[in-house]
Amino acid sequence: MIHFLNLIRWKNLLIIALTQYLIKYALLLPFRESHGVFITLSDFNFFLLVLATLCIAAGGYVINDIHDIETDKINKPNQLIINKHITDKTATTLFMVLNIVGVGIGFYLANGIGKSGFFAIFFIASALLYIYSTSLKQIAVVGNVVVSIVVALSIILVGIFELVPAMNANNKTVQTTFINIIKDYAVFAFMINLVREMVKDIEDIDGDHNAGIQTLPVLLGRARANKIVFILSLVPIFSVTYYVITYLFKQQLVVGYFLILVIAPLIYVSIKLFNAETKAHYKHISLILKIVMLTGMLSLLLYNFILK
């Protein structure tokens, strides 16, 4: 059971589920009466939305591991799961089941809210993760961007399903305001994930090189790739700082939260990147970025102070 959970990256799935639940129950529901926010999904249907998202994400992790067997023998020999604890055939079947369930639930939900076209989001996300694992990850930066888009999509999905169907002429301004807040979080997730994916590419340069995968570090070398990722790591620092100064500056508690738990760790990441050399360095940086992703999403709990 533990090998199955590790294969689908259960910790990452928990962060996705937590983020989606925070958006609904910390950002949207508390402001139904005070701000006139209209939401669409019942508690059960929202659970199905989260489940569909997790199934497609889990399927993406499985297919990625199936196609990473050779590189993982070099990059993560102690963490190998496919053909060591779970057979290739079982993993492929699991990938197919997860995607059928995820896309199927998406089809049911889209039709249930009278927006059948929304079903395409689940299908596109599933297809992108498959294409990424089979071909796009071999193209420098493109694969990193695609994965980061899918991560951002898992966040904006809540706004699409909860707010868009309930939008009308009377509440358009309020609905749009909250969609924009969700969009800002999706952009944040995209930026952090993109930096993290590129850090992981530097960490995995040896296995990727042997497998002929043309990642940025393989093409340019570790030192040059490191400089590019360092410059890229400055973007979320300036973006979050600008956001805090522009929208949150009057809320001291909120400013303190972002400074200590989001901006400071991002500055730490940039400093560490500037001097990073070993695989252990990049592994540490990747972990800090995952924590920043979590603390960034937990800031959704502060909107009771921001929008009071």
Rank of each mutant, 00 (worst) to 15 (best):
F230G: 00
F95L: 06
I66A: 10
H67K: 15
L287R: 15
I179A: 11
Y247D: 10
T134N: 08
M191E: 14
L49E: 04
D68L: 06
A127D: 05
D88M: 12
S116P: 14
I131H: 04
I113F: 03
C55D: 06
M167D: 02
T71E: 15
F4Y: 15
A189H: 02
T134I: 13
F161Q: 02
V142E: 03
F4I: 12
A223P: 02
A276G: 08
Y25L: 02
K308W: 13
N99L: 02
S148I: 03
V145C: 03
F178G: 12
V235T: 11
V62S: 00
S133H: 03
G256R: 08
V199P: 00
I179K: 03
G212R: 07
Y268P: 00
V199Q: 03
P165V: 07
I23S: 01
A225H: 06
I155V: 14
K137E: 02
L219S: 13
T40E: 15
L27G: 07
I121V: 15
Y21L: 12
M297A: 13
F249S: 15
L80E: 12
Y282I: 04
R32D: 09
F47K: 01
M191T: 04
I86K: 02
N12Q: 11
V150N: 07
N75T: 08
I291P: 00
V146I: 15
Y132R: 05
S299H: 08
R222D: 13
Y257D: 08
V269L: 05
I237W: 09
L220Q: 07
I63A: 03
L22G: 01
K279C: 01
R222T: 14
M293Q: 05
I69Y: 12
S239Y: 15
D184E: 14
N111G: 15
N78P: 01
S116A: 12
T278C: 05
N75L: 06
Q79K: 15
A127G: 04
A127S: 14
G143H: 01
A189C: 13
T71D: 11
V97G: 08
P265M: 10
N6E: 12
L13W: 03
L18E: 06
A264K: 09
T53S: 15
T53F: 07
V50T: 13
D43Q: 11
L289F: 03
I202L: 13
V174S: 04
V147G: 03
L153Y: 07
A26W: 12
N111M: 09
K279W: 10
T19F: 00
M167W: 10
A264W: 13
Q252P: 12
Y247T: 03
V103I: 15
D208K: 06
G114E: 05
L80V: 11
Y242Q: 12
I100M: 11
P165F: 09
V255G: 09
V195M: 00
F161D: 05
I202F: 05
I202Q: 03
F122W: 05
V164T: 13
L48Y: 06
P217V: 02
